[in-house]
Write a protein that binds this DNA or RNA. Structure first.
Lengths: 225, 225
DNA sequence: TCAAAAGTGTTAAGTTTACACCCATGA
DNA sequence: TCATGGGTGTAAACTTAACACTTTTGA
């Protein structure tokens, strides 16, 4: 180690994951009822410590993988949290990431193992440390980003109905949208393609299924939901 | 130290500051021509290491203070940079912050001492490590934030002309704005107040000076420049 | 046959953009 | 007297918002 660095302090660094899912027309978060210390018995985000051999982004992916068994989940940085007393045990800095995943891909067995639960975003319980703050900021970022970039599709199945897509955005924004205006907008986006498949699960009549064609999407400024 | 934490890795954590100034109708960055290792002789952001006794935000303020002698400068998070090899010397994580300061408040003596220079944003030289990336992200955040929150005033004097305000926003966005439309917008914002003072430095005729009244501003959704 | 979700256009209101000239002053 | 930046309004284009009924089907 060079002398330049040797006099400096070193710190534990964690990543915490705000994991969004969409289910029954509502946003949910995957939260842990901690059966381990510190803060045993309380609700928290899934987290883990950064290791020497991985980047922060890799650590976030790893932590998510440990909980869900899923790779290639959409993730993005929320911010970093560096208050001295944020973790009452030891000083730990944390980088928060949010993830958007399809709730159907989540193995309930893994949930049990970690004592993880999908909790309605609206019914958010108190969380340990500064995790509530992290969640608030994550929602804010999600709202802004979802309105100008096609990331919402990560919360849906490959094929989805327009009603599902609309209720997803309603859940993200926390407000209802006009059906006809919504569909008009979607119709203008060439990269949201109608298939000839029909979903019968949501209605007797059935609704056409659509898909997001990421190849057709290239930072289209038309994207604005 | 509890056994829970003791098996985890610890890391050096730095803060790097992207310091914006506004001067002669152009955005500038305060950069160091490093006369110290590592990367001596190259351009970099002002940075420093996080210490045990301070939060990340405090560290950012301290680092800025060391360079400028200024307190109470507007600062905001840019992101957390955690690639393994980002600093070729040792593994160092970095939290980037941007700062908006009035260039007139900056003491040129301090600049000399640190070998710091105000560089036109448009003429940005190559920077060490991932600092260029940090700057790009900071500009992006600044552009978005300046368009919906009244943070731009931090780059101006307390009193400013509308021409100065307009050229500030033109510099931030990198595009020119229509003078009449711009002034129409400003006129609708009650918290940007016309004084009866006149600035003669920019024209023979002189221009009215305005001030930002932060007390009158309360997350006004009308703010959109 | 009826309940429940799917699907479909038009109009008014509001916002954004484009645009050109006169004013006041000091050198 | 003239060069320079300061200051001002209107109309067209475009975007957003509000709004209600018909269709299809399985139970």
């Amino acid at each position: 180690m060079s002398s330049f660095y040797s006099s400096k302090d070193k710190f534990y660094v964690a990543v915490d994951c705000i994991i969004f899912g969409f289910y029954q027309s509502e946003l949910h978060l995957l939260l842990l009822k901690r059966n381990f210390e510190p803060a045993k018995g309380e609700w928290s985000l899934m987290g883990g410590f950064l290791q020497k051999d991985e980047s922060l982004d890799q650590a976030a992916k790893r932590v998510l993988y440990e909980l869900t068994g899923l790779e290639k989940v959409y993730m993005d940085q929320v911010g970093f949290f560096g208050e001295i007393e944020r973790d009452p045990g030891e000083r730990v800095l944390s980088a928060a990431y949010y993830a958007l995943m399809n709730i159907d891909h989540y193995d309930p067995e893994l949930a049990k193992k970690h004592n993880a639960h999908w909790i309605k975003f609206k019914d958010l319980p108190p969380l340990i440390f500064d995790h509530t703050k992290m969640v608030e900021i994550a929602l804010d970022i999600l709202q802004r980003k979802a309105s100008t970039e096609p990331i919402g599709f990560n919360l849906l199945s490959k094929l989805f109905t327009l009603s599902q897509l609309q209720s997803l955005y309603e859940a993200i924004y926390g407000e209802s949208l006009d059906k006809r205006n919504f569909r008009k907008r979607i119709a203008e986006m060439d990269f949201i393609e109608k298939t000839d498949e029909i979903d019968k699960s949501g209605s007797r009549r059935g609704a056409y299924l659509y898909k997001f064609n990421s190849k057709a999407y290239r930072k289209d400024p038309k994207f604005k939901i």
